[in-house]
Design a binder for these strands. Structure first.
Lengths: 333, 333
DNA sequence: GGTTATAATGTAAACGGTTACATAGTCTTA
DNA sequence: TAAGACTATGTAACCGTTTACATTATAACC
C-alpha cells in the first residue's frame, strides 16, 4: 500500500501539501493539486484510516448499543442507523447490552480507546456516570427511546402517549366498551407514556376500571399470562390494547387457546409495527412507530454533532400511525 | 488519558519495558513488572487501541457483512458472532450488502484501511477478486452459508440436503403422498441443496411429479404465489415443503385465504427455524438451523485464524433438526 | 579465566497520517 | 516603497504504540 510519502515523492511536493489536497484544507495552487491528484491516482493511494485516527482522534466509526438484536424491534433501528452512516462513509459497530449497565460500561471502555466518533444508545440502562464521562471527552451521544433525568443529550423517541390514545380511540370506534391494557415495564419511559395515554383515553369510558390494567414484560409469554388474568377479572372484556406487539401476539395466542374469537368477541391492538403483526391470524392492528426513520434520524443527528461539534439537546418525538387490520375489525352489520 | 510514557516515567522504566509487561512478551524481571503494574493501576492506564492498531496493523475489530439485518434469519447470526467476539474483547462492525457485490466491495475498501482483523461474509455476492485481494493481504475470511468455487476459505453452513430429506420424510410419516416443494433462488447453494434433498426423498413417492416443484424468492409473497400455482396444477396436493420459513408463511396465508385447512387438508413444513414459526396459526413445523451457533462458530474460526495465522479451509456442515408443530400434525384416528 | 548464552532493560525508529510554525513570494495600500 | 496581508509550500513535531537492535550484567561451559 502506498503512503502519503510515496505520493509526495511522486508529485514532487511535501507530505503537508498532499494532506492539504486530500482534506481540501488551506490553499493549494490548483496546478500543484493536479499533480498530487495524478500521483494519488497512479499509486491507487487511499489514506490510512488508522493513522488518521491516531492523529485526529476520530476513526470514522459510530457505535450502536441496543438491548438485543434478536428482539424484532431492533433490526429496523439498526438498519436505519447503518444506512445513513454508510452513506456518509462511516461504519457502525454493534453491541448487545441485554439491558445490563455493566455490559454497556464494558463496551464504552473498550470503544473509547478505539477513538470512535460517537454513540447511539437504544438501551435502557446507561449509567449516568458513563454518559457524564463521554460528555467530558466531548464524544457525542444520542439516546433512542429513552431520556435520562439530567438529559443533556439529544433524545429521539416516538410519541408514545399519542399513539396509545390512537389505539384506544380506534378500539372505541370499533365498538369496544371495556378495554384492557397490558403495560410494559414501568422503568421504560415508553411503557409509562403508553400507559398514560391509555388512561387518558380509556379513563372516561363507562366500562373503565383500574383493574383493566395488567403488567407484562414486553415479551410474548407475558402477554399470554396477562390475558389469563384479565379474563378472570373481566369476563366481559371486549378490547385489549397491548403495550407492544409481542405482548399482543401473546394475547392473541391466549385468546385463541381459550376459544375466544378475535375480532368478533375481543379486539386486539398492539404497538410498534414490527413485521410479525402481518403474519398472525388474524393480522394484528398496531400503532406503528417509524423505527427505521428513528434509526436514520439518530444517525443524522449524531453525525451533525460530530461534524459541527455543536450539541442540540432537543427531545424529538416522532409521529406514529395506526395500522388497522383484521384483529380490530368491526363486524359488518 | 495517561499514555505509556506516563506509566514508564512513574514506574521509572522505559516505555519498552511497559509494553513488554502489558503484552507479556520477552522477559521482564518480576519485581520490575510489579512496579509497572502498580503504575498502570495508579494512572488508570488503558492502552490506546488506535496507536496499537497503527503499529500492529490490527484494530481488534471484525466485520460481519450480511445481506440485510431486516431479514429475520440474520439477527441470530449476528448475535452469535457478536457474543463470541465480545467475549474475546473484539468488536463487530455490521454491514448490510443487500446482496449487491458493489456494496460489499465498498465495505471492503473502507474497512481495509481501518485495519480490521477479519471478515465474515454471510452475503451471497462476494466477488472472487475481493476475496483474492484480502487473501493476498493475509486478512482472514470466513464464509457463511456459501462456498465459492475456488473456495480457499473456511465455509460454514448447515446440512441443507439432509434437512430437506428430514422435512420430506416427516411429511411422509404424517401421511402425505403428494408433496410439493417451493424452492429458493438457485444461485444460492443452500436453496440448491434443499431442492436436491427434496428430490432425493420425494422422488420415489408414487404421487411424485416434477411439476410439484415451483420457484420462490425466499420471501412471504413468493410463497403465496407459489401456492397459487401449485393448487392450480395439483388440486390433490397434501403436503408442502417450503425452502424457507418465510415462503412457508406465505404458503400458510394462501391456503388460509382459499379456505384450505392446515394441517387437515394440506400439511406445511418450512426451513430455518426463525421465531416467526412459533406465532403463525397453526404453528409451523420447520427444519431449524442452529443459526446462533453458526454465527458463534464462524466467529471462533475467524478468531482462531487471526490469532494463529493458520488457515484451515474446511467446509463445516452443521446438523439441523426438525421441529414438529401443528402445521404437519396428523389427525388422531 | 575467557568465551558464550541468556536475562533484563533501554534507545530510537517505525507505523502513516495531521498540523503548528516558518519561510518565501506576490499583491495591496498609504 | 516599505509595511502589511495573503498565497503557497515546506519542516518537523506529534498522535501512542510496538519492536529491532544495542547494551549490560549474570550464569554456564570448556
Amino acid at each position: 500500500m502506498a503512503t502519503i510519502r510515496d505520493v509526495a515523492r511522486l508529485a514532487g511536493v511535501s507530505v503537508a501539501t498532499v494532506s492539504r489536497v486530500i482534506n481540501q484544507k488551506d490553499s493549494v495552487n490548483s496546478e500543484t493539486a493536479g499533480q498530487v491528484l495524478k500521483a494519488i491516482e497512479q499509486l491507487h493511494y487511499v489514506p490510512n484510516a488508522v493513522a488518521r485516527g491516531l492523529a485526529g482522534k476520530k476513526m470514522g466509526i459510530i457505535v450502536l448499543i441496543l438491548p438485543d438484536i434478536l428482539n424484532p424491534f431492533f433490526p429496523a433501528l439498526a438498519r436505519g442507523v447503518e444506512d445513513v452512516a454508510h452513506k456518509k462513509g462511516l461504519t457502525v459497530i454493534l453491541g448487545n447490552s441485554d439491558d445490563l449497565g455493566i455490559k454497556e460500561s464494558s463496551y464504552i471502555k473498550v470503544l473509547r480507546e478505539k477513538y470512535v466518533d460517537g454513540f447511539i444508545f437504544a438501551s435502557n440502562t446507561i449509567r449516568e456516570e458513563d454518559v457524564e464521562s463521554l460528555r467530558n471527552d466531548r464524544i457525542p451521544i444520542v439516546l433512542l427511546d429513552r431520556g435520562l433525568n439530567t438529559a443533556s443529550c439529544p433524545v429521539i423517541r416516538s410519541n408514545n402517549r399519542e399513539g396509545a390514545k390512537l389505539a384506544v380511540q380506534h378500539l372505541i370506534e370499533q365498538g369496544c366498551q371495556r378495554i384492557a391494557h397490558i403495560y410494559g415495564p414501568q422503568e421504560f419511559i415508553t411503557a409509562r407514556d403508553r400507559l398514560l395515554g391509555y388512561e387518558e383515553a380509556a379513563g372516561r369510558l363507562k366500562g373503565y376500571s383500574p383493574s383493566l390494567m395488567v403488567s407484562g414484560n414486553f415479551d410474548i409469554e407475558s402477554g399470554r399470562n396477562a390475558v389469563e388474568q384479565l379474563i378472570a377479572r373481566h369476563p366481559d372484556l371486549d378490547g385489549i390494547f397491548a403495550g407492544n406487539d409481542l405482548m399482543a401476539v401473546g394475547a392473541l395466542k391466549a385468546l385463541h387457546d381459550r376459544g375466544i374469537r378475535v375480532p368478533e368477541q375481543v379486539k386486539v391492538c398492539g404497538f410498534d409495527g414490527i413485521g410479525l403483526t402481518e403474519i398472525t391470524e388474524p393480522e394484528l392492528t398496531t400503532v406503528a412507530q417509524p423505527v427505521y426513520e428513528m434509526g436514520g434520524l439518530a444517525a443524522r443527528i449524531l453525525l451533525d454533532e460530530i461534524e459541527s461539534g455543536i450539541r442540540e439537546n432537543t427531545l424529538r418525538e416522532l409521529d406514529v400511525r395506526l395500522i388497522p387490520r383484521k384483529s380490530t375489525r368491526k363486524e359488518e352489520t
